[in-house]
Amino acid sequence: MINLLHKFGIEPQSIEQPLDLEIPENKMMLAFYLAAPEVENDRRGLNVFHGIRRAKKEGRWTSSALVGYANLIANGRKYIAPKEPVASAMRKAFKDASEGKFTLREIYRQAKENGITCGYNNFCNILRSPVYCGKIPVPKYKDEEAFLAGGQHEPLVSEAIFYRAQDVLNGNIKGKATSIKLSSDYLLLRGFLDCPKCTRKLTGSASKGQAGQYYHYYHCGLACKWRIKAEGVNQAVDKETKKITIKEEYDFFYRECISKGFRRHSNNGEYSQKHVVDQIKALNARITQARDHFMAGEFTHADFQAVKSQCETEINSLEKKLPDIILSTKMVDQKLTGLLSNLKVLVDRYKHGDFEIKRRIISSIHPQNIGFSGLEHRTNRINE
């Protein structure tokens, strides 16, 4: 830039450090004057970088608070804390994502209704952030591998829920997702009914009569055109739901059966403690095998590090699930008291619950869609 200015007959000059650039030796001083502040800026930037990295290792969040948190200061120290009602909306979003019952679009729509204001793409990204389960990601730097540090902030969800949500989002666990829009109480069963003619799922809509009154129908697509009044179908399903209750004399029997069944499943199921421990052992064995290949010269150092990093990430994810599995096994008897109590008042909860609660109850009772011929209610199987 100095040479360019010289071409136009302009001589740049510093007030504090004047130099006569016609003297060749002064160019050495000019180079020093120009380089010194750049070195100072680089040093300051490096100090800031190491300070931020050190803070992350200590478990402190150093950026703007994520959705559901707020940036606060106490005793001159900055930290993040849950911010309601958005924090509760994020908890529900993670819970729904971990269950796999709704599509990501539907989860986002419900989250917006509960107070979240971010865009859809940002919402998808923050669902991947381990900050919500109390971890601070520390990126890779030189020879130090990336890892998750224990955060000093309050987590919004447990690690088990967070990692299960990641499995569902990554497609490792297939969820029974639905994008049904939760709108009208008159169309409570939309998405739960099969067409008796073509076996497709029935949708629902309202028709406006001559007197301005709306009449609700469950109906099939344009090709089939089968439809039925929603009121009659809703009443039939209500009648079937009222049949489900627990008699007092069978309370102890149910409790014993469910407790034994749960313990047997916990010891042998896909998400049992034994299954998770076996997976961790297999991943550790894979790391050992990769190390042996590296020592024998069959793997490069980069190959070994890649295998080790992938296995350690999976081991870390599995280890986060173990505490919840162990705790749920220990607390099954305690939880059964509340669960059986809820089942006793199922009819009352269904009658007075909101739209979403009613749909959850129907979904839990009917694992397969409900059929209705127009004369009688039928279903392929009731959830035992």
Rank of each mutant, 00 (worst) to 15 (best):
Q110G: 03
N75M: 11
S64F: 13
K101Y: 14
N41P: 01
K78I: 05
A81G: 06
G59V: 02
R60S: 11
I52C: 00
V138K: 02
I107F: 01
S98D: 04
K83H: 11
P37I: 11
A81C: 06
M90T: 03
P85K: 09
V86D: 10
K112I: 14
R43N: 13
K112A: 12
P37Q: 12
A81W: 09
G100A: 03
S64P: 01
F123D: 09
T62K: 03
T103I: 02
A55C: 09
G115N: 08
E99L: 10
Y79C: 00
R53D: 08
G68Q: 08
K92F: 10
P139R: 03
E40C: 07
I116P: 01
Y141T: 10
K92Q: 15
A74V: 13
P82S: 14
K112L: 12
P37K: 05
P85T: 10
H50V: 08
D143W: 07
K83D: 14
E58L: 10
I80N: 03
S63K: 09
R43C: 12
D96E: 13
E84M: 04
L46C: 07
G134I: 12
A36Q: 13
A111L: 04
I136D: 04
T62H: 04
N121P: 01
K57H: 11
S129N: 14
L127T: 05
G115T: 05
K101C: 04
Y120P: 00
A111V: 01
G76F: 12
S88I: 06
H50W: 15
A146L: 12
N122P: 00
K135E: 15
F102D: 00
R109N: 12
C118F: 07
G59S: 06
L127P: 01
N122C: 09
N75G: 03
N47S: 13
N75W: 06
I73Y: 08
T117I: 13
I116M: 05
K92E: 15
A89D: 12
N122M: 11
A35C: 10
G68D: 09
E144V: 11
M90E: 02
L127H: 03
N121H: 10
